[in-house]
Amino acid sequence: MIEVLNPTAGPATGKIMMAERTGTLDGLRLGVIWNGRPYGDRVINSVIDLLRQKYSFESVTFRKKPFIGNVAPASIRDEIVESCDAVITGIGD
């Protein structure tokens, strides 16, 4: 018998956590971050239009990330944290 080693890094470190759920979207201040990919703004705006048919938002703050592949800069994150109750973002092409 020989013993060999598992080469994987195992599960994620857990530093990235699911945000607390808001319950309802009604009356919330919504933040939206577009990853900057061409036409992504159109997709996201369509999503907002659909959501507006079901919910009434107090405000919608729309921001664009300068780098598609990196997390949004601190200035955008801080603004969203300060002025929004929930945020919609995503990756995709």
Partner: peptide, 13 residues
Amino acid sequence: TADRISVENLDAA
């Protein structure tokens, strides 16, 4: 810290 797995021989590994 990696998990160890026992196998019969090199071929099995």
